[in-house]
């Protein structure tokens, strides 16, 4: 085949892309049909390469980065330099689930603010990791609040967080309403939502006590205890801690979880609002687990299949009936 001149190709290209340029461009008349057909074929073939759509979570992930860029200055105070250490510390993961009275307690506002007090607010739709003055690290789940003080190993929690506590002679304690979790050096999960505190331990030992009643429960690795408001903590139970820590990977795990609680979790994780038109979940529970990449719509679809509801979205709010 003879080599067409460059300008011929330019004109053919213009013709082939005419849809966007000038729809009425006629094909160049000095070009043999065979050539034109061949190039049309190439043009069409190129169209078969289809780009995928962006993942739906891209906005959320971007939001995380946007906030991370801003949080850092606020949440990392200039703290005392780390104490001269004994040999390298090891983190033990403990999962403590503590059920706590949610939202009602505002006693730390009543307390006079001490110098060097930091309040970390994690909104719905976010999670945040904070390094404490003593070197401990806390991962905080959506819709939670953590308060800590400089020079102290006492923190207060509303919501849910996973603690990796640096071992030290001074005990580290987490107060969640009536519940107090005391540890020496471990990593554990405290879930303080509504009127129940759940504590799960992965490594090490933790003690969970009711400050009002004074009862204490010691928890070892793989154990869990629950505490309802006004009650003593339950005796240690061995559990599969995986599902209590699923939130750290962005997974949602429900096991005989009341539907209302399921919707609370979704509300916090995705930062949406649910309107329950005439849907009464009653005593129904859900047992299911959802991978981190599942969209809210996919999850609602699955839930409504089981719970017998329908959902409709409008403007960021979901109607459930």
């Amino acid at each position: 085949m003879e080599e067409s001149s460059q300008s011929t190709f330019d004109r053919i290209a213009k013709f082939l892309s005419r849809k966007s340029v000038e729809p009425d461009i006629p094909p160049p008349d000095d070009v043999p049909n065979a050539t034109l057909e061949e190039l049309q074929q190439i043009w069409d073939l190129a169209g078969k390469v289809k780009a995928p759509d962006a993942p739906k979570e891209m906005w959320h992930r971007l939001q995380g980065k946007m906030h991370a860029a801003e949080r850092r200055p606020a949440s990392v105070r200039a703290l005392r330099p780390r104490q001269k250490k004994r040999p390298r510390f090891t983190y033990y993961a403990l999962r403590l689930a503590a059920a706590l009275l949610i939202a009602m307690t505002s006693y730390w506002i009543v307390d006079q603010a001490l110098l060097g007090r930091t309040t970390v607010l994690v909104h719905n739709g976010e999670t945040r990791t904070v390094d404490l003055p003593d070197g401990s690290r806390v991962e905080i789940n959506s819709g939670s609040k953590l308060v800590y003080w400089r020079g102290s190993r006492k923190v207060e929690l509303e919501g849910e967080a996973f603690f990796q506590v640096e071992p030290s002679r001074e005990p580290f304690s987490v107060s969640a309403g009536e519940a107090k979790v005391v540890v020496l050096g471990t990593a554990f999960n405290v879930r303080a939502r509504k009127s129940r505190v759940t504590v799960v331990v992965d490594h090490g030992t933790v003690s969970l006590e009711s400050v009002h009643i004074g009862d204490k429960v010691k928890l070892q690795a793989g154990e869990m205890s629950r505490m309802e408001k006004g009650r003593s903590p339950t005796p240690a139970m061995t559990v599969d801690i995986g599902r209590f820590l699923a939130w750290r990977e962005g997974r949602l795990v429900f096991e005989r979880t009341p539907i209302t609680e399921v919707f609370d979790e979704l509300r916090r994780k995705f930062d949406v609002v649910f309107d329950f038109a005439d849907f009464d979940p009653g005593e129904r529970t859900l047992t299911a687990s959802f991978a981190p990449d599942k969209s809210l719509q996919e999850i609602l679809f699955a839930i409504c299949l089981t719970a017998g509801c329908q959902f409709e979205e409008s403007d960021g709010r979901f109607q459930i009936r």
Partner: peptide, 20 residues
């Protein structure tokens, strides 16, 4: 732009020649 488009077409054809 016109020139680059023509060039693209020419190079693609050259690249695809064996397959076509």
């Amino acid at each position: 732009v016109e020139h680059q488009m023509g060039r693209a077409l020419r190079l693609l054809r050259k690249c695809l020649r064996p397959s076509l």
